[in-house]
Design a binder for these strands. Structure first.
Lengths: 349, 349
DNA sequence: CTGAAAGCGCTTACAG
DNA sequence: CTGAAAGCGCTTACAG
């Protein structure tokens, strides 16, 4: 009978053969001479099955090239082994490193993830979340702490564990892994003050919540040092190297006395540096430059750019770790994990 | 009865409520006073359903906040609406742009994708493919044309459509979207020759098939011009800006007469440029530099780097498009789509 | 155009 | 430790 059925699969299929040639748990069970449940257990909880059974199942799995159907697993168990990840942009290598951290933690736990790229749009974010929900994600990792209230509610309704990344959540019970963007900006201000700069400026693009917090902290540090006049060139456009050059141009045009520049991220800083080179402005002599994130080129370029080293990989890894713990129902003592940051002082400021 | 059942869902659940509070197609059907099948049709093929029905279903969907369960859909239909994408590395922005192209084409077609990052390891690639298969992907997009034979066979067995990206497949029947890596390398060689350089060198990392083809083409162009001596510094290490600096150092140390350098990608080129600046080598006067891919910083840096513009976004978009056509069973006339490339001649060479 | 029945390939919850 | 039954939430394939 077993053989009968097996050959009929290969030969002319009597029933519809939707999953072409794909072995099912039933096929494995028949080949191993056990029940489907035993196959299921042997695969998921080997210790609940005798070694003999386990071996027979293993042999059958091998022979048939059995690969479990995750859709069936998901439907039956209401667990998808899928984690949703929401990041603003794939083209920002900051988030790519975070993704790598997430993957490294998740993959050993047998989870995969689907990425949603919001492009900094709350609308798109809502939409992406809805897609993620339809895939029955078991957990969610979101960049930032500002989640659409509707979305937050539906996540709560469906009991989907959630961890925020890149910023510290103030909300009671919320889980977050990141660092204080405001304090990071503040330290950049302190750094420039301590180096004797007295007319600092800021250039920023995107103007997402985290960038604005950095700027806020930066201005606070200057204010604490008695400096209230801060040259600024802000735009909601996405940041890029090219934008850095443009903003630098506009800022020094409007504020020729500006002696130091906080660029809200490294792309802007690199673009500003190149533009200085084109204009014959010496860095840091004529203008000091500080970036943010410490991407690889910051230390490589000439002069090397002073920046802020942020724990991007670690944020992803720890956020994934925290999420898994929450999903396992563990009690979590530290709900907001501050991974800190560091000023990398180099030649440019 | 309908109301009865609805309230029992909200109140004390009699049965196990696995999918917490989540409305099913049955709930929608009851609320709309139609059969589940009509709901299914109204959602998937609205034109098969009368406008009246459609409206009733729409209202019920809205009211209940119904989101389809894709696991159930996948299991029942044997179609997952999931596409597997295999790329070597997320930290290479080349592939990020490709991903963006893929997403732009796939999202309008209602498909999502899962990414597998091979880190240039065939073993990892095999493993990732197996994971993708267990998610029942409907199609696959792979970087490169060299697929593990075992994997290729199992894809064929399961009739999973496949499109190669970034290189032209020679295999009969295979679908690919890209450009000729060899010819691109050749044109770089031609460019340097035409500019009068006579002692060109190459630096390369990773040494993946596509890099090696570029190098091969480059050397062919030099050979055609009567130059057979080519200084080379190759390493299997992953490429990076830092590596570019190191390789530059080693190459000019060993071959001080080298007058032009083909860097197998822009990261290497930028690192080489920075290292030249540190060493006081004037680019291009003392050493010309050519990169590959034309990433944003190539045109921004000082001097701007001559590079090769590659259609990365378009490759992703077109590959996804081709895959969808294949999945729809359309007949495909052009199986290998060559999107070409362009030399972006700038200041550095 | 609409619906009742059966099934997709697993796991849950219960027996033994 | 092992298994038979029922069900997860959809869609396929038929009827009408």
């Amino acid at each position: 009978m077993a053989a009968e059925r097996t050959t009929s699969r290969k030969g002319s299929p009597k029933k519809r053969t939707r999953a072409l040639g794909r072995a099912t748990i039933g096929d494995v069970a028949r080949a191993a001479g056990v029940s489907p449940m035993t196959v299921s257990r042997a695969l998921k909880s080997p210790n609940l099955v005798t070694p003999t059974m386990r071996a027979r199942v293993a042999r059958a799995v091998e022979k048939l090239g059995y690969v479990p159907n995750l859709a069936a697993q998901t439907l039956a168990s209401a667990r998808s082994s899928l984690i949703g990840v929401i990041i603003p942009s794939l083209s920002n290598s900051v988030f790519i490193e975070t993704l790598t951290g997430i993957r490294d933690r998740l993959s050993v736990a047998g989870y995969q993830f689907i990425i949603g790229e919001t492009l900094y749009s709350p609308d798109l974010e809502r939409q992406l979340l809805s897609t993620h929900l339809s895939r029955a994600i078991d957990g969610l990792l979101v960049t930032g702490v500002d989640l659409d209230p509707d979305v937050a509610r539906s996540l709560k309704n469906r009991r989907i564990p959630l961890v925020h990344m890149f910023d510290m959540s103030e909300e009671a019970g919320a889980l977050s892994v990141g660092f204080s963007q405001t304090r990071a900006g503040y330290e950049v201000g302190r750094h420039l003050i301590s180096r004797g700069y007295r007319s600092p400026g800021v250039i920023a693009g995107q103007l997402d919540p985290r960038s604005l917090k950095r700027r806020h902290g930066f201005r606070a540090a200057l204010a604490d040092a008695g400096i209230s006049q801060v040259a600024e060139m802000l735009t909601p456009q996405p940041t890029s190297i090219a934008l850095g050059g443009q903003l630098l141009g506009r800022l020094v045009g409007a504020h020729p006395d500006c002696d130091a520049l906080f660029c809200i991220n490294d792309d802007l800083a690199l673009g500003a540096l190149f533009e200085c080179q084109r204009r014959g402005l010496r860095v840091p002599h004529d203008l000091a430059i500080v970036g943010f994130n410490d991407l690889p080129y910051a230390r490589a370029c000439v002069p090397a750019i002073t920046s802020v080293t942020t724990p991007r990989y670690e944020i992803g890894f720890q956020a994934a770790h925290l999420l898994l713990r929450r999903m396992n129902g563990e009690t979590i003592e530290r709900r907001a994990i501050d991974l800190g940051f560091q000023i990398a002082a180099r030649e440019s400021a």
